[in-house]
């Protein structure tokens, strides 16, 4: 337990100490919220879909969580490059514990980030419609955070230099985000896009957040929760396995 705690604490300390990372990771969601929210708002309204900020805010919260979570997972590449990873890998501690500690740390940071973005979106005019559901919204945030930290860990375990980082951002994070329904409704999409979106785990996270915060869900909250739990469990297992196989 102590080992998991110290690894968790390390992730938190690193996050809190890097001001640039905090500002950068809050600036981006803010920009999306303002630019897209106010830019597309009128069109969205005209199409009879209601208030776009209401629709968009849960998507942007999910975005800030997956970006932060993926980054925490991928930090393994940094730790490998700067050598710190060796220190943990030769310790008499199971790699599963190391992976769990890191993942919980990364996920905690991501959830904190999501909460801050939620608060910011309140200033931008977002109003959750169902206050008692907020704890469940938090559960969705935690699941998405753990899922994407684990995905980041799994991918980073296979890469041994920083070159891979940009590839991941371009070919994993961006498509997952854009094809998740974070920015647009999933109803009435072309068939191909709709299928891809329904295979994207983030779609269920976004949907769950929207279902809990504004009472509109495409798949339904029960489906969202079940899918997310299953996928998260699978990726934590895959991430742990790949992490345990790292060689230096």
């Amino acid at each position: 337990m102590k080992v998991i705690y110290i690894l968790w604490l390390r992730q938190l300390k690193r996050y809190i100490r890097s001001k640039a990372r905090i500002i950068g990771s809050l600036g981006q969601p803010l920009l999306f919220l303002v630019a897209l929210g106010f830019g597309f708002g009128p069109i969205f309204q005209k199409a009879g879909q209601g208030n776009y900020i209401q629709f968009l805010a849960p998507g942007i919260i999910a975005m800030s969580i997956i970006f932060t979570a993926m980054f925490s997972g991928i930090e393994i590449i940094w730790d490998r490059q700067f050598g710190f990873l060796k220190e943990t890998l030769v310790a008499p501690v199971s790699r599963l514990k190391i992976m769990v500690g890191r993942t919980l740390g990364g996920a905690t940071v991501a959830v904190l980030q999501g909460i801050v973005v939620l608060l910011i979106s309140l200033i931008a005019g977002f109003r959750p419609t169902n206050i008692p559901m907020i704890p469940l919204a938090l559960v969705f945030m935690i699941l998405v955070a753990i899922l994407f930290t684990a995905i980041g860990t799994a991918i980073a375990s296979l890469l041994d230099d920083m070159q891979g980082f940009h590839l991941i951002m371009t070919f994993v994070v961006m498509p997952v985000f854009f094809l998740s329904g974070a920015l647009f409704p999933l109803d009435g999409l072309p068939r191909g896009v709709s299928i891809v979106a329904s295979m994207n785990p983030l779609s269920y996270g976004v949907d769950g957040l929207r279902g809990t915060l504004i009472g509109v869900a495409h798949f339904g909250l029960a489906t969202d929760l079940a899918v997310l739990i299953a996928v998260t469990a699978a990726f934590v297992a895959i991430g742990s396995y790949l992490f345990s196989k790292i060689q230096i």
């Binding site: 080992v3 390390r10 690193r14 220190e87 008499p92």
Partner: peptide, 30 residues
């Protein structure tokens, strides 16, 4: 892993932690 300790040739410290924190982290791992 329960039988050895090592000082690596290449750096393996956490730059974002203090000297004391690096030492403490190691104590808990071991």
């Amino acid at each position: 892993r329960q039988t050895f300790g090592i000082v690596f040739q290449d750096p393996s410290l956490d730059d974002e932690l203090t000297a004391y924190e690096n030492m403490e982290f190691h104590c808990i791992l071991y």
